[in-house]
């Protein structure tokens, strides 16, 4: 088990290292001078421009040798300094991102967990009968094939415009200010529902199909046949097959995280939901490069953390990894 985690941690550290390096490298070695571009944009605001100019020279320290620039970048990063947002001047990027994080967590955590649980259970049920399978599987395939933003748009159009039962923009109504009242909480939930639901649905399709395929495979496994030959009741065989099938679904979740995060980005754009995806769109449109770099790092850190959590859960559910045997985890 120590070896298992040791290996995982090494991968994560290397990944983080690589990600930070990319984050540092790209602005410096891309054609053109994006930072100058950015400064040109904010120059309407002359104080901002001069502060940025100073910051920029300091941060990029173009007079310094490259390795020192690189070390400085790390030093700043470890102090939590990701620069200053041009678009939300003079807010530090870290603070801007911190404000957005709760929305991402509120959206992603329930969407990921619930869709995974529901999808797995649904898929297991679908594997039971031909009739169910023939109706559920095509729907599942269509759902996973749907681009996240499109399902979001369709839901917004149908529930937000045609039926007019859900708001389709923002995290809460402009007319309300954040308080701990029922009215406000209700309003927040109302705004949260559609983005959550569209994230949920696309993933749900994928998990349902994955489980359906895995469980059919497991029901054909030798240990299932043996139980059948010994006349064990169907319920026991199904339970064992499910328990075995859940493991690859769990490592599948780790592998899907990147895709899910990308889905969340575009879903937030559709619903103007103030998470990192929405920020990112604004940052791109305003050529706010520090903010873009910050979003990149935050996404990486988030995915690495989630991966780590999944690893721990995997060890908890797969005894083989605990016993130092090699498990299936990715």
């Amino acid at each position: 088990m120590r070896k298992y985690f040791g290996r995982k941690l090494l991968i994560y550290l290397l990944t983080f290292f690589l990600a930070v390096t990319i984050d540092w490298l790209i602005p410096r070695f891309m054609p053109g001078n994006p930072v100058a571009n950015m400064l040109a944009r904010v120059s309407v605001n002359s104080t901002a421009a001069s502060v940025m100019q100073e910051y920029y020279t300091h941060l990029f320290g173009l007079d310094l040798p490259l390795w020192q620039q690189y070390l400085n970048f790390w030093a700043n990063l470890l102090r939590g300094d990701l620069g200053i947002s041009a678009y939300l001047f003079p807010k530090p990027v870290t603070q801007v991102l911190m404000n957005a994080i709760p929305y991402d967590v509120a959206l992603l955590l329930p969407a990921i967990l619930l869709s995974w649980l529901a999808g797995n259970n649904f898929g297991a049920v679908a594997a039971r009968s031909k009739w169910l399978d023939n109706t559920v599987s095509p729907i599942g395939y269509i759902l996973t094939a749907t681009p996240y933003m499109w399902l979001g748009i369709l839901l917004a159009w149908f529930f937000g415009i045609i039926l007019d039962v859900f708001p389709i923009a923002g995290a809460y109504s402009f007319s309300l200010s954040p308080t701990l009242s029922w009215k406000f909480i209700g309003d927040v939930l109302l705004h949260w529902f559609l983005p959550f639901f569209s994230l949920f649905m696309v993933q749900f399709g994928g998990w349902a199909i994955g489980m359906r395929n895995m469980i059919i495979y497991e029901l054909e496994a030798d240990y299932s046949h043996y139980l059948e030959a010994l006349g064990a009741p169907r319920s026991l065989i199904r339970r064992y097959a499910f328990n075995n099938a859940v493991l690859p679904q769990l490592s599948g979740l780790a592998l899907q995280l990147g895709v899910i995060v990308a889905g969340a980005l575009v879903t937030e754009v559709v619903f103007s939901y103030p998470g990192i995806g929405y920020l990112l769109l604004a940052a791109i449109q305003n050529q706010d490069y520090f903010l873009i770099q910050g979003c990149f790092l935050f996404i990486i850190i988030g995915v690495l953390l989630a991966n780590f959590v999944i690893d721990i859960v995997y060890v908890l559910v797969d005894p083989r990894t605990r016993r130092g045997m090699t498990g299936e985890a990715a």
Binding site: D222, Y226, N243, P319
Partner: peptide
């Protein structure tokens, strides 16, 4: 197939 006849995770 006795070698694989037992549920691997029990």
């Amino acid at each position: 197939y006795a070698m694989n006849a037992m549920n691997p995770i029990r």
